[in-house]
Amino acid sequence: MIELDPATVLYITHPQVEIDAAVAPPDWGLSAIGSARVAHLAQRLTILQPTGKAAVIASAERKAVETAAPLAAALGALVSCRPDTHENDRSSTGYLLPDAFEVQADAFFAKPSQSVRGCERAVDAQARIQREVQAVEQDYPDLALVFCGHGAVGTLLYCALRGVAIDRRWDQSAGGGNWFAYDRHSRQVLGHWAPIETLFAGQRAGCEKR
């Protein structure tokens, strides 16, 4: 059972988005399905009555902010935007159709030290997300942390914490809206990716550590 205490760091990926080929991916917002999934998680957080016990961090991408805002409201917190937690930079390719996107993602993880079609290298994205997450930990030493971010850099963070090589086998399931947690002191990952519907499911007010 995951509990909201200062040792806990949650990494949550944004769920389904409204894809628009005419709009840059960082400006995509959540779809109706994605928004509903976040709203249900926010309801569960409200039941825990954790006001003032957590900080909510988002990248500056619209889909991450739209994921973070309802969760922050439920937690009695403000959203802190940290632009360097953004998804891997693939602006050089522009919008890719689903099949082409999967080919690009496979290559991104398979060749982490190479730039694929001019995009940010996986090793650089991993160093960036690690650096920024550690900076946030230092900024909020006494609060549980809830990161609202992205699948690729989230997986790179997961690999670093687990001490395993970058590999897409560790990626989240399709559709987004997944989470994992780790202990900021031991650096131990507390399980693999799971859908956000499992997060705090069945927990009641007063269950968190005091």
Rank of each mutant, 00 (worst) to 15 (best):
A181G: 13
G175L: 02
R162G: 07
W193M: 14
A160T: 12
C159P: 06
A181F: 03
R187G: 07
A165M: 04
A181I: 01
R187I: 06
G191E: 13
L145C: 01
G191P: 08
G151H: 06
G154C: 01
Y140S: 08
A165K: 09
G154Q: 03
F180V: 00
H150W: 13
R184D: 12
P141G: 10
Y182C: 00
T155F: 03
W179T: 00
W170V: 00
V164K: 09
Q172Y: 04
H150T: 05
L161T: 07
V146I: 13
H192Y: 08
R187L: 14
Q138K: 15
D139K: 12
A135M: 14
T155D: 04
R184F: 10
L157S: 07
Q138W: 10
Y158M: 05
C148Q: 15
D183I: 10
F147P: 00
G151M: 03
R187A: 14
V136R: 08
V136T: 09
A135E: 15
H192D: 15
G154L: 02
G176T: 05
A144R: 05
L161Q: 04
W193Y: 12
R168P: 09
L143R: 15
G176A: 04
W179Q: 00
V189H: 08
F147D: 00
V136S: 08
W170Y: 15
H185Y: 12
E137N: 04
D167G: 00
L143D: 12
L190E: 07
D171I: 04
Q188H: 14
L143K: 15
G177T: 10
G191I: 11
A194F: 06
V153Q: 05
A160D: 11
Q138C: 14
D171Y: 15
R168K: 15
E132D: 09
G176S: 05
G149R: 10
H150S: 06
V146M: 09
Q138P: 07
R128N: 03
G149E: 12
Q134S: 14
G154R: 06
G176F: 08
Q188G: 06
G177V: 06
Q134I: 03
V133S: 08
L143S: 13
D171G: 12
R131F: 05
G151W: 07
W193G: 13
A135F: 12
F147I: 00
S186K: 09
A144G: 10
V136G: 10
W179L: 02
R168A: 14
G176P: 07
R169T: 14
S173I: 04
A144V: 01
C159L: 04
G175S: 02
S173C: 05
G151Y: 06
A144L: 02
V164C: 08
D142K: 12
Q134E: 15
A160H: 14
R131N: 09
Y140C: 09
V164W: 06
A181P: 03
C148S: 13
D142R: 12
R184L: 07
N178W: 04
D167E: 02
V136K: 05
Y182E: 03
R131K: 11
R131Y: 06
D171R: 15
V189S: 12
D167C: 01
D142F: 04
G154E: 02
A127M: 04
A127Y: 04
C159Q: 13
A127G: 08
V189Y: 12
G191M: 11
G154Y: 05
G149K: 11
L156P: 07
R187P: 06
G176N: 03
G149T: 08
G154M: 01
N178A: 06
R184M: 10
R128K: 06
R162S: 03
